[in-house]
């Protein structure tokens, strides 16, 4: 690619201050890019830092967060920007869909108003006009009888409908970048497909770049052209989705792949990786995946393996990767 990517994250590290005053590193050594109109899938188990990464990009981390590294949006740094300038970008140029649609909607405000609010704010439209646009959006999100439902409060909708409202809010101003933080995790399996379908349709039509966060490798495989694998706050593997899934170099990626339903053929979410993600406060020395890794060697517990880039935009973090192929 010759033109600069829409989003460029370099060496991002995020720490959060705990109640006792200590700084707990949550993310470290995160770098990736997203081109205009491109979909990047970010996968990782629960607690790997996906939500923190999403919030870091849109600049909405808790106030106690310490951030280093750089985030370039459309060539300009977001890190270090004052809140006023960020407010102009948030909602209008970068949209965010939340993991929990129920929690992300104001219980005391009608859904049309919640969608219209951003339009009024960024476009300076009157409320009446913005509400009409909101109803159109609801209609596009395939909410039945959008005109009648517009004055509903969030509690009057189903989970799937609420997330469609969430999508409508995030896409109301046709942002260039949409961050979708596990947009369907909280939904019933039956409505997940439909909501993802609506999301994909809109994103394709408007040429929106999508940062699709998920712990579901299947969803990412289906929707993303490139992907990034996170584990315990750092990246383990990245590259074109087909390459990463076709020839995974990191044992963690292989583990995720093996845990995919259909691969084992015995029901859903079968052979998940044994053990759990280590607490970020007590990371093992050396590789973060040590202790759960099937390919572990004693050396893995000594130094944290460095990130190594190779091939066409691929990269991996593992002591044992690339030892045979390259060099």
């Amino acid at each position: 690619m010759t033109s600069a990517p829409l989003l460029r994250v370099d060496d991002l590290a995020v720490s959060l201050r705990l109640a006792d005053g200590r700084l707990l590193p949550i993310l470290s050594d995160i770098s990736f890019t997203i081109g205009r109109g491109e979909t990047l899938g970010i996968v990782g188990e629960s607690g790997s830092g996906k939500t923190i990464l999403s919030l870091a990009v849109i600049g909405l981390l808790p106030e106690s967060a310490a951030v280093s590294g750089s985030i370039l949006f459309d060539g300009k740094p977001l890190t270090g920007l004052d809140d006023k300038s960020l407010c102009r970008i948030r909602g209008s140029r970068i949209g965010l869909i939340f993991q929990e649609p129920t929690a992300a909607l104001n219980p005391a405000m009608t859904i049309a108003d919640q969608i219209a609010e951003g339009i009024v704010l960024h476009r300076g439209t009157g409320w009446r006009d913005a509400r009409r646009q909101a109803i159109e959006l609801l209609d596009r999100m395939r909410i039945d009888q959008a005109v009648r439902r517009a004055d509903d409060y969030p509690h009057e909708l189903s989970g799937g409908q609420r997330q469609r409202v969430g999508i409508a809010i995030a896409l109301a101003l046709e942002p260039e970048l949409l961050i979708a933080d596990e947009p369907t995790t909280a939904l019933d399996a039956t409505v997940q497909q439909e909501v993802l379908g609506i999301l994909t349709e809109f994103v394709r039509e408007k040429g929106v770049a999508l940062m699709l966060v998920s712990h579901n490798l299947g969803v990412v495989a289906h929707m993303a052209s490139r992907m990034l694998v996170l584990y315990a706050g750092t990246r383990m593997e990245a590259g074109e989705t087909a390459d990463v899934l076709g020839d995974p170099h990191n044992p963690y990626t292989r583990g995720l792949l093996a845990a995919l339903p259909g691969r084992t053929g015995r029901g859903r979410r079968m052979a998940s990786i044994p053990g759990t993600v280590p607490s970020l406060a007590h990371l093992p020395p050396g590789c973060r995946f040590a202790g759960r890794c099937a390919d572990e060697i004693p050396q893995c517990s000594q130094d944290e393996p460095a990130w190594r880039a190779f091939g066409a935009a691929r990269g991996v973090r593992c002591l044992r990767a690339l030892t045979t192929e390259s060099v």
Partner: peptide, 14 residues
Amino acid sequence: EDFLRAARAKGLSR
């Protein structure tokens, strides 16, 4: 609450 963060994600000031 998340909905406050959501309001900020729309671009509302603090």
